[in-house]
């Protein structure tokens, strides 16, 4: 299945990945190859088969409602590219 560059631009926008004009053709072509590979799935009839999101039929265990974490703000904030007054800084958020 061929993928046009417009589709790639839309995907890149959704995934927030900047793709340069120089490489977009190449990216489109590779994505097309991969989608061609996965399109083999369409050949098989899966009517009535329940999709399997987890390999094992296990069920979720729930945890007790207790505070187990302590404040490690300084340790975490030290990893941030930019922070001030205990906050992570980003370019202005406009609502």
């Amino acid at each position: 299945m061929a993928v046009d560059t417009q589709t790639v631009e839309k995907l890149a926008e959704l995934a927030r990945i900047a793709i340069s004009n120089a490489t977009i053709e190449e990216v489109s072509s590779r994505l097309g190859d991969i989608l061609q590979l996965v399109d083999q799935l369409q050949a098989i009839n899966t009517d009535g088969v329940i999709p399997m999101a987890h390999p094992l039929d296990e069920v979720q265990t729930l945890r007790a409602d207790a505070v187990t974490e302590t404040d490690q703000r300084n340790s975490f904030l030290s990893l941030a590219p930019q922070s001030d007054e205990g906050l992570y800084l980003v370019p202005k958020v406009i609502d």
Partner: peptide, 12 residues
């Protein structure tokens, strides 16, 4: 066509 189908095939 993709995600759901793949998870069905996974079960097979």
């Amino acid at each position: 066509a993709y995600y759901n189908k793949a998870q069905q095939v996974r079960r097979l």
